[in-house]
Design a protein around this nucleic acid. Structure first.
Lengths: 117, 117
DNA sequence: TCAAGTACCTACTAAAAAGTGTGTATCATG
DNA sequence: CATGATACACACTTTTTAGTAGGTACTTGA
């Protein structure tokens, strides 16, 4: 789903830093272009794939599922697929996903204080 | 220092997301491979370029100055150059840099709770 | 029977981030 | 007179991330 060269210095440093630095550890879980937006949507409750898509218009379908898959693998969200047709899939936050709210709250505070635009 | 194509969808989305999402806003300031490590070093006080380099062995000189420059541009750190030779440059956190400690504290809490390794 | 809606998958390309390697000026020291 | 230490600068390559553009299966409704 994204080929990674395990032996590169980039990967070595990434692993090194991730295991030594809690900030990087969490950043790898929630810190890319779309993850925070998806997480925020799920703070207000369980959502379907299509609902997330409509809630975040500029995201492409590829980036949306990619983001959802990574969040699922990292245990931040749950995926519940109903065996019906047309498909019906629901996403929700896990406990660790919910616990991100405290972190995000602090980030929002800082951003409001220093975001001048 | 890193050529960016302003017209790309990537950049459009980056700007869009950065202005709409406080998490992304702050992530752009402190969320890459080396920034958190540099910031952490500076939590314990002013440091010289060479001290930072020795404190974070795997970082390359290019990545270190690049990181320092970005942090300076973003107002997270101060750079104080003494007009002596050999050069003597000191880096320290600004107020907004200091204020990152609350954010980082929450991140550390989450990481300690969910970092299983 | 043809289009629309569901939740994806896959190959590909463009762009950005990270890393490598070399070079700079000035002085002190051996 | 060469070497080391200081704090960088710059061109370049590698690796990763983001985005584009197609396609899938099944069913309902017109």
């Amino acid at each position: 789903m994204a080929t990674v060269k395990e032996s590169s210095t980039n990967q070595l440093n990434k692993r090194l830093v991730t295991t030594k630095c809690p900030v990087t550890f969490i950043a790898n879980k929630m810190g890319n272009r779309w993850k925070p937006l998806v997480i925020r949507e799920l703070f207000s409750g369980t959502k379907r794939y299509g609902e997330l898509k409509r809630a975040i218009p500029p995201i492409s379908e590829k980036m949306l599922i990619q983001t959802l898959k990574e969040l699922e693998v990292d245990g931040i969200i749950n995926r519940k697929a109903m065996p019906v047709v047309p498909p019906h899939v629901e996403y929700s936050l896990t406990d660790s996903g919910q616990d991100l709210e405290a972190v995000i709250t602090e980030m929002v505070k800082w951003s409001l204080k220093y975001n001048i635009q």
